[in-house]
């Protein structure tokens, strides 16, 4: 009985077999990226060619997180086979990661807390009053 509703796509009997060479290449790339990220965190600043990186804090953070995403992409696409999977699987894989970034809307709150449109209502330096409450031991 052919199911119309699931006739397309990933099919058990003849799934995409990822060639061994590709897996090994991915493994190599992941190891390389791992070494790169360690190096980026432990840059020998005394070495003249890297001296300028010393104050590039934002750049170094972006490099670290960029490499992490690159590695994640390699694992998701090759090891987890999303690159060769059905559209539905891709939707789930990508949807999950996209949705989790939505949580980062919360960051807007933290970035804009000091901002106060009404003059004279600005909070002081601390956002909460000091709590002088008797505390249970």
């Amino acid at each position: 009985m052919a199911h119309e509703s699931h006739s397309s796509g990933h099919s058990g009997g003849h799934a995409h077999v990822i060639p061994q060479s590709k897996l090994i290449a991915t493994m190599g790339a992941l190891t390389g990226l791992m070494l790169l990220t360690i190096f980026a965190a432990q840059v020998p600043y005394w070495f003249p060619a890297f001296a300028w990186l010393k104050d590039q804090h934002l750049l170094m953070n972006l490099i670290a997180i960029g490499i992490a995403f690159w590695k994640a992409w390699l694992v998701v696409s090759i090891f987890m086979g999303v690159k060769f999977a059905t559209k539905l699987t891709r939707l789930f894989a990508i949807g999950g990661f996209v949705w989790f970034t939505l949580m980062f809307i919360t960051m807007i709150d933290y970035f804009t807390r000091p901002w106060e449109p009404v003059k004279g209502w600005e909070a002081g330096n601390s956002s909460a009053l000091p709590r002088n409450v008797a505390r249970p031991e």
Partner: peptide, 20 residues
């Protein structure tokens, strides 16, 4: 298991390799 690896891929730079 790949997912477990994936989490560690992010945990490692975030905890052990914080740039200045």
């Amino acid at each position: 298991w790949h997912f477990v690896d994936l989490v560690w891929i992010f945990l490692y730079p975030l905890f052990y390799l914080i740039p200045k």
